[in-house]
Design a binder for these strands. Structure first.
Ligand code: FES
Ligand code: FES
Lengths: 136, 136
DNA sequence: ATAAATAAGGATAAAAATATCCTTTAATAT
DNA sequence: ATATTAAAGGATATTTTTATCCTTATTTAT
């Protein structure tokens, strides 16, 4: 998503091969994740020559939480640190009172950081999407 | 560890069966984790009749970070959110600048919360180590 | 129409995490 | 000494996550 955001400024398509290469992730695996993002309406895809993937909405309106939820589900946001079936105030686990603040911090960060925030730093060369040497 | 802390007030041994039951975790699996904790010096064990496990040091001196590190290694503390080989300021990933604060929050919490903190709440019935219904 | 490019989707495969089983070792009690 | 109890440790199994392969469907260009 971040790589596409750096490419989708005008709405160009980006091919699977190029995306996988850019983030140093296996093609077939990357394809599955992209399929998921398409299914969830975050990304549009077109087949055929010059086909590829493209972020559907303005990157300033897509928050990281939405992407994480699409790929990994919601356990990161609502799961119990000690693995209890569910995290509640009624029956809190032994670390709930300490953990909740951290989890909320993470959730808050993901809900307030949008793709543009993040991709801008990649575009300006301040941060990266893969290891420098590309030898991973 | 938290369950043992609630039991080890005076230094009593606690058997594997009892621990596994108390935290609703499979015995054999729990045994492997205990072996690891013994190896890392957090827990002592004795075989034979009336044998069992016992926390080695005062629970007020054992911080959660030490336990997590023993069981899961240090990736939680130093790993990159986007999966880059390593997390550095030199070659930060696209979310490093946002993620670091959250990770440091988690690390800080684990480094400042000791077992006694946590087990006291279990002893007083404010928090729990397994699901209420025990039907997990 | 036909060929070429590219994503979609289903079926496996490999790797990692989680879990079990069984034998061995050490401690205690008789 | 012997029997019993309980952890240690090695081998194996299951499940989940990660990854690959191959066929099908769709779009574009000729
Ligand atoms: S109950 Fe465990 S984190 Fe809330
Ligand atoms: S480089 Fe990714 S979190 Fe620091």
């Amino acid at each position: 998503m971040i790589y596409m955001a750096t490419r989708s400024v005008a709405g160009e398509k980006t091919g699977l091969k190029e995306i996988a290469e850019a983030i140093n992730s296996p093609q077939a695996f990357t394809a599955k994740i992209l399929q998921n993002l398409v299914k969830d309406g975050l990304v549009s895809s077109t087949k055929g020559p010059h086909g590829g993937f493209c972020i559907k909405r303005p990157t300033a309106e897509i928050f990281l939480a939405e992407i994480v939820a699409s790929i990994d589900g919601d356990q990161l946001f609502i799961g119990c640190a000690l693995g209890l079936e569910k995290c509640t105030e009624d029956h809190p686990c032994a670390v709930h009172y300490k953990f909740k603040a951290v989890r909320d911090h993470l959730t808050g960060m993901l809900q307030t950081t949008h793709l543009e925030d993040v991709s801008d730093r990649v575009i300006t060369g301040l941060s990266f999407l893969k290891t420098g040497t590309n030898k991973r």
